[in-house]
C-alpha cells in the first residue's frame, strides 16, 4: 500500500519565481525566506517521495469564470506551467500519475465529493513555485505531480471544513492505493495577504501565528472560522489557507512538525514554510 511520508506547506508568491530566475536566494531581502527550505531539501533527499499531491488554487491560467470548479483533480500523465500573462513559463515539465489520480477520483466521488476531472490541464505558479523551491536546479523533477485545485477565487468558496474533509478523503484514497508509492502532500499559498482594495497590503501576524501553531497538533482549530471570517482575518488572498487546511486533512495519522519558517514580508505577503512528517496512527 502507498504511504504518506509528510506534508509541505508553503507560500507560492509569483515574485519567488522571479527571485529564483534571478538567483536572488542569498539577497538579504530573500534569504530569510529561502533558508526555510534547507531542512526541506534534506528531508526530501532522505525521503525521496515518488508522488506529490498538491492542493493549490489556480490564478486564472487553467480555469476561467465560464467554468469555475470548486474542486478539480488532475488526471494527466504530464502537466506544464505556461505564461500567465507576464511572459514567464518555467521550463521543467511535471510528470503525472494518471492511474493514482483516477484512484483518488473514484474514492472521493464515492465519498460524496463532486470534483472536476481534468485529463489535460496547465498548472500555474501555485504549483510551479513550490516545486522549484523544493527541487532547485535544472534536473527533471524526481517526484510526480497530482494537482488538486481548490476555488479560492470566486465566492462562494468551499468551507474550511469541506476542504479539510476533501483532504481526509484524498488521504484515505492514497493509503488504499495498491501501489507502493511514497507520497508527499503539498498545501500552497498564504499566509495573510491582500492584493486588492483599500485594504491592500493587509497582514495579520496574529492570525498567521495561530495557524502555524495549530497546524500540526490541532488543525481543527482552523475550522472555527468560516471562509468570510478568514477573508476578514487573513485578507482576500490569505484565504488560500484553504489549500493548507485541505493538505493537512490528508495527513490522517501521526503528525510531527519538523520545520517551520515564518517571514514577513515577501512582496505583499506574510510568507511561511512548514514541514510535517506523517506516519500511520499507532493505536495505543
Amino acid at each position: 500500500m502507498s504511504k504518506i511520508c509528510g506534508g509541505i506547506f508553503t507560500s507560492h508568491v509569483p515574485g519567488i519565481g522571479k527571485a529564483i530566475a534571478q538567483n536572488l536566494q542569498n539577497d538579504p531581502y530573500w534569504k530569510p525566506f529561502f533558508d526555510g527550505f534547507d531542512p526541506i531539501h534534506r528531508w526530501l533527499a532522505a525521503e525521496k517521495p515518488d508522488v506529490a499531491v498538491v492542493f493549490y488554487n489556480d490564478h486564472g491560467l487553467n480555469f476561467f469564470l465560464d467554468k469555475m470548479p470548486t474542486f478539480a483533480i488532475g488526471a494527466a500523465n504530464e502537466y506544464r506551467h505556461e505564461d500567465e500573462g507576464w511572459g514567464i513559463a518555467f521550463a521543467r515539465p511535471f510528470q503525472g500519475h494518471a492511474d493514482l489520480s483516477w484512484h483518488i477520483i473514484e474514492h472521493v466521488v464515492a465519498s460524496e465529493f463532486d470534483p472536476v476531472m481534468c485529463q489535460a490541464m496547465t498548472v500555474d505558479h501555485a504549483v510551479a513555485v513550490p516545486f522549484e523551491l523544493c527541487w532547485p536546479g535544472k534536473d527533471a523533477f524526481p517526484t510526480k505531480l497530482i494537482p488538486i485545485a481548490i476555488n479560492t477565487v470566486q465566492h462562494p468558496l468551499p468551507s474550511p471544513k469541506r476542504c479539510h474533509d476533501l483532504g481526509k478523503a484524498v488521504g484515505r484514497a492514497i493509503e488504499s492505493w495498491g501501489g507502493n508509492e511514497k507520497v508527499v502532500i503539498f498545501g500552497t499559498g498564504g499566509l495573510s495577504h491582500q492584493l486588492e482594495g483599500e485594504r491592500a497590503g493587509h497582514i495579520n501576524v496574529d492570525y498567521d501565528k495561530f495557524c502555524l501553531r495549530n497546524l500540526a497538533p490541532d488543525p481543527e482549530a482552523l475550522l472555527q472560522h468560516d471562509t468570510l471570517d478568514i477573508v476578514e482575518l487573513a485578507g482576500s488572498q490569505g484565504v488560500e489557507i484553504l489549500n493548507w487546511i485541505a493538505a493537512r486533512g490528508a495527513l490522517t495519522g501521526s503528525v510531527r512538525e519538523l520545520a517551520s519558517n515564518y517571514h514577513v514580508p515577501i512582496s505583499n505577503t506574510a510568507a511561511a514554510t512548514v514541514l510535517l512528517s506523517h506516519s500511520e496512527r499507532v493505536l495505543a
Partner: peptide, 9 residues
C-alpha cells in the same frame, strides 16, 4: 509587520 520566526526539530 516585519518578523522572522524559525523552528527546526
Amino acid at each position: 509587520h516585519s518578523v522572522t520566526e524559525t523552528r527546526v526539530a
